[in-house]
Design a protein around this nucleic acid. Sequence first.
DNA 1: GATGAATGAGCTTTCATTCAT
DNA 2: TATGAATGAAAGCTCATTCAT
Lengths: 220, 220, 220, 220
Amino acid sequence: METNSEREARVPRWERRPEDRPQEIMEAALRVFADRGFRAVRLEEIAEAAGVTKGTLYRYFKGKNELLFQALEHRQQLRSERFRQMTGEVAGPASAKLRRLLSGALAEYVDPENARLHRLLMGELSNDAPELARELLRNTLVRGWTHVQRLIEEGQAAGEFRADADAEVVARIFLSGVSYQMQLFLNPCLGPGTQLPVERLAESATDFLLHGLAPSSSAA
Amino acid sequence: METNSEREARVPRWERRPEDRPQEIMEAALRVFADRGFRAVRLEEIAEAAGVTKGTLYRYFKGKNELLFQALEHRQQLRSERFRQMTGEVAGPASAKLRRLLSGALAEYVDPENARLHRLLMGELSNDAPELARELLRNTLVRGWTHVQRLIEEGQAAGEFRADADAEVVARIFLSGVSYQMQLFLNPCLGPGTQLPVERLAESATDFLLHGLAPSSSAA
Amino acid sequence: METNSEREARVPRWERRPEDRPQEIMEAALRVFADRGFRAVRLEEIAEAAGVTKGTLYRYFKGKNELLFQALEHRQQLRSERFRQMTGEVAGPASAKLRRLLSGALAEYVDPENARLHRLLMGELSNDAPELARELLRNTLVRGWTHVQRLIEEGQAAGEFRADADAEVVARIFLSGVSYQMQLFLNPCLGPGTQLPVERLAESATDFLLHGLAPSSSAA
Amino acid sequence: METNSEREARVPRWERRPEDRPQEIMEAALRVFADRGFRAVRLEEIAEAAGVTKGTLYRYFKGKNELLFQALEHRQQLRSERFRQMTGEVAGPASAKLRRLLSGALAEYVDPENARLHRLLMGELSNDAPELARELLRNTLVRGWTHVQRLIEEGQAAGEFRADADAEVVARIFLSGVSYQMQLFLNPCLGPGTQLPVERLAESATDFLLHGLAPSSSAA
DNA sequence: GATGAATGAGCTTTCATTCAT
DNA sequence: TATGAATGAAAGCTCATTCAT
C-alpha cells in the first residue's frame, strides 16, 4: 500500500504526452489489483496510480472488468515470451534442463507482483470470471508443470531417472509446491519469520527433486 | 414487489433450537463465503442460507467482517482438534508416520469447502484482514509443514532418511504442493481434464517424498 | 414545478407505516416525471417527492426505467376503468352518445398530470421505450378515436349523420384535435393568453363535430 | 483502443467549404435531435453526423443548449419564409383559401423531421427551455390556427360559412387535429397499422371542415 | 481552425447497517 | 428475539466541456 512513489506531483495533463496511455493504465491497474484485490479497489485508485482521472479510464476500457481482463491478457503475452525463452532447447541431461527451468521459474515467481496476481487468479478471479481464470492458469502453472513432466519423462527414457516415478504427479507437486512457497513468502500477512532465502529454497528443492527421481538402489 | 413466501426455511422454525442460531449462521456464512468470496457475497444471501433474515445476523455478530472472522475462528477450532488426532503419537518408523499424516491431510483437503476457504484465506482475507489470515495460515499450512519437518528430522536422526536433505524445504515444498493440487482440483474454473484421482496423487506423492529422502546411493 | 406541498416536514420513517409504499412511490414518480420529463429527473427528486430516500426506491423497483414503466401501467389500469364507464351503453341517438363521450374525455384531459404524461408518452417515451409507448397510446388515444368512429358509423347507419363522411378521419381529427388543445392549455410554456375556457372548447367543438356530420343540404 | 479510422467523413473535407460549417452542424444537430431527443443525444453523435469532431462544435456554439437553440431558430426562419408563401394572398372564396392552406400545411407536416421536431418542442423543450418552446410554438401551430381562424371569419363575413360557428375553436381543433395525426403517423412506436394515406387524410379532413362550416339547414 | 485526450460533476445503482415494531 | 423497511455512503459509469497541440 505504501510501496509506490505516492503519485508524482500532479503534472498538467498536456505536459505528458505518452502515446501509450493504455499501457500505462494497464500497468497501474495490475499493480493496484495485485496489491489490494479486484473488488476492493476503486477505479479512482487505479486512475490515481496511473496519473490520470477516473474518466480517462473509460476512454480506453469499457469498465472495471474489461480493464482487469485486458491488463491480464497484456501481461500474459509478456509472460508467454519469457516462458518460451526459459524452455528453449538446451543440450544436456534432463537434470540440467530441470535445474535451468526451475531457476527460471523462481526468478519469475520472485517478482512480488507476479505472485500477487497469481493470488488474484486463484481467488476472486476464479469466482468472478472463471473462463479467464482458467485460461490464465493453463498458461502459467499448468503449462509449467506439463513442461516439467516432459523433462522428467525424457530423463526416464534416457535412463537418467528411475522409471517407476509418476512423472505427472511429481511434476505437479513439485512445481506447485515451489510456486506456493513463493506466494507465501510474498504474502503480506505471513510474517518474515516464515520466509526462507530464495537461494536455499532453489537449491534444496532441486536437490529434493533429483533425489526423488534418482534410480532407486534400496529405497522403499 | 408483492410479498412472496418463496423462500421457506428448509427446516420448520420450531424444530431448530434457537440456542445454536449463531452456530448455524456461522456455518451458513462459511459455506457461502467459501463459494463466492467475501466481498462478492451479500449479507442477505448468508441470511437466506442460514434460514434467518438480515437483521438477525446483527443480533449475533457485529457486522460482515466480524461474522467472517468468528466463523473462521470457530471452524479453526474443529480443525485443530482433528489435527491433534491426526498427529497423535504412533509407534513405528518415520516413513509410516509420514504416510499416516499425509493421508490425513488429504482427507482434510478433499473437502471442497476447506479448499475454498483456503483460497479465501490466501486471497481476499490476506488483504482485508492480514492478522487473521496470518493466524489461520499458521494454524493450518505452517503447522502442517512444521510437523512434517519434525517427522523428517526424526527419520534423519534414526538414520532412516538421508541426513543431507533439507528437512524444512522438503517439508514445505511437499505439503504445499499437495495442498495446492487439491485446491486446483476443486477450483471451479479448472476443467475436469486437469484433475487427478486423489488416490493416485496420495500414492505417487508419498512415493516421491520417500524416494527423495531415501539414503543416497548414487544421486547427485 | 412549485405545485406540490413542498414535501411535508420530514417525519421519522418508522412513524409512517403505509402498507402501500409502492403505490405512493409510483404516484410521486408520475407526478415528477410528468412535470419534468424522464431523463431530466433525478431519482433523488422522486424519492423526495415520495417522502423516502433514494435507496428505498430500489426495494420496490428495479431501476429508473422499471419505475416509470410500472407507474405508467398502474395508472393505465385506473384509466381503463374510467374509459369503460365513459363508454358504457346509453340509449339514445348517436349524437347524444358523442356528447357524453366528449365531455368525459375532456374531464380526463383537463387533469394537468394526464396531459403532461401524454406529452411524456409522445416525447421521450416514444424514443426510449417504443413498445411501451405504443401500448399506452393504443390504450388511450387510439382507443378513444376508435370509439368515436364507431359512434359516428352508428349514427350514419341510423341516418342521423350524413353517410358520405369519412368516419375514421373525422374521428381521428376531432379527438386528437381536442386532445392536443388540452395539452397546449396545460403546457407551461404557452402563456395564458393562448388558453380557452374548457367549457367553450367543449361546446364549440361538439357543435363543430355535429355540424360536420349533419346530413348535407347544400354544402360542397 | 487502437486509433480507428472507421468513421470517414462522407464528403472529403476539402470539398466542404468551411464557411458554412455552422449551417452544416445545425442541420446535423436538428436531424439527430429530432430522431432521438435532446438529452438522449450525445454531442459526439452530432459531431459525427456533421462530419466534424466534438471540439469543433464548441468553436461555433457555446454548448449543447445553445446548439439546439440556434439550430431551431435557424430552422424557424426557413419555415417562416415558407409560411408566408403558403398564406400569400389569393383571390377566391374562403373555402378555396382554406383548401390551399391545408394542403400546404400537410406538405410541411409530412416531412418526418418536422414532425419529430414538433415532438421535441412539445416534450423536452417545453420543460427545459419554456421561453424558446413558446416562441417556436407561436410561430408554427399558433400562427397556423390563427390564420385558419382568420380565413373562417372571412368566410363568415362573406356569408360563405355559417355565422354561428366558433371560428377560433374550429380553427384550433381542426389544425391541431391534423398536426397531431401527422405526428402519430411518423411516430416510430405506432405501428403502420394505425396510419392513413396522407391524401385521404387531406381530402376527408377538408371535407369535414367545410361541412362543419356550411350554413346550416337543419343540423342541431 | 480543428482535434480529441483529459477532466470532473453528476447520476444510477448497490448494500452494510440501523431500528421501530 | 426476529423482522425487514429504510437509510445513505460509496462505487461504477457517462458525457458536456476544456484546452494544448
